[in-house]
């Protein structure tokens, strides 16, 4: 709560800058129009025009909000022009990819923690894999998979998975190794097996590490799904809306897709935060 006022101030400042930039960027088009119509614009008329153009260089925030309202509340969910429908297409790919990435990441982390050979051979490549700009070649993967008949949800989910497994591996390796030597020795005095140690000690103590990784993984997964939608001929999903908007210069549509993606990301991350709070409270790890 302490940071409520500061956050509000910063968001307010961003809004002011946004409106200012909208006026500055859109004014030349407003003057152009006026020149062709042989009228002179007063300053206030010019400002009013920059707020209400059809294809502005930078739409004003309230135009974006109006567009989002129009395409969510006023459209039927099944309609192809409904932002909720497009959002759902993206969300389903995101969630599937996230689930696969998390599962794969945890398995890999368990393997790395238990096998020295795996740690030494795989771990460097896991890190290297992230320096490869896979996101940039994601569209290619989609197109190629399409060419051999795999289309729809799965290709996008694969890209999401590739992006989301990394933070989980790194976080879980750290987490599974977080029990200290004394706790491990204690387990050994009870002659616990490796799997008992994993379930009773390593996994519970890794929870505080898991959730922050999940948040990063979720955000990455959404980015993957959106980029994965770019080349599919602009059919469905928030990414498709972005691409269609850029083809036809529909800036308001681009921004509304962007903002929806932002809201989606924030909601998903907040949801994980909520689960994190409940879980850690139950496990007595939250003060």
């Amino acid at each position: 709560m302490r940071s409520f006022a500061p956050v509000l101030t910063v968001v307010g400042a961003i809004m002011v800058i946004w409106y200012g930039a909208a006026v500055a960027l859109n004014s030349s088009w407003a003057y152009d129009k006026a020149k062709r119509a042989d009228v002179t614009l007063s300053f206030s008329e010019m400002v009013a025009d920059t707020m209400a153009q059809k294809k502005p260089l930078l739409p004003a925030p309230h135009q974006v909000v109006a567009e989002i309202y129009k395409t969510t509340v006023l459209k039927k969910i099944t309609s192809k022009r409904s932002l909720i429908w497009h959002g759902w297409v993206t969300l389903s790919a995101t969630l599937l990819g996230f689930a696969m990435g998390t599962g794969f990441g945890i398995l890999l982390a368990v393997g790395i923690v238990h096998s020295r050979a795996m740690d030494m051979s795989v771990m460097p490549w896991v890190i290297t894999s992230q320096t490869i700009p896979i996101l940039a070649v994601a569209p290619m993967i989609i197109v190629v998979l399409n060419a051999v008949g795999i289309s729809g949800l799965l290709p996008k989910a694969f890209i999401s998975m590739y992006l989301s497994f990394f933070p989980v591996v790194v976080g879980m390796v750290k987490g599974l190794r977080s029990p200290d030597a004394m706790q491990m020795d204690q387990m050994r005095t009870w002659s616990a097996t490796q799997s008992t140690m994993l379930w009773k000690l390593r996994l519970p103590s890794s929870m505080p590490y898991l959730f922050p990784s999940l948040k990063i993984a979720m955000a990455a997964s959404l980015v993957g799904a959106i980029v994965g939608e770019l080349p599919t001929g602009a059919v469905a999903g928030l990414g498709a809306r972005l691409l269609a908007g850029s083809y036809y210069g529909q800036t308001i549509q681009i921004w509304s897709a962007l903002i929806s993606a932002a809201v989606l990301a924030a909601t998903l991350v907040a949801l994980i935060g909520l689960i994190q709070n409940i879980t850690l409270k139950r496990m007595g790890m939250l003060r």
């Binding site: 260089l57 850029s246 924030a266």
Partner: peptide, 16 residues
């Protein structure tokens, strides 16, 4: 918050 957003989506706007 912004760091977690799909900023790449800004690409078409910036190209414009």
């Amino acid at each position: 918050f912004v760091a977690a957003l799909p900023i790449v989506g800004m690409a078409p706007i910036l190209v414009m």
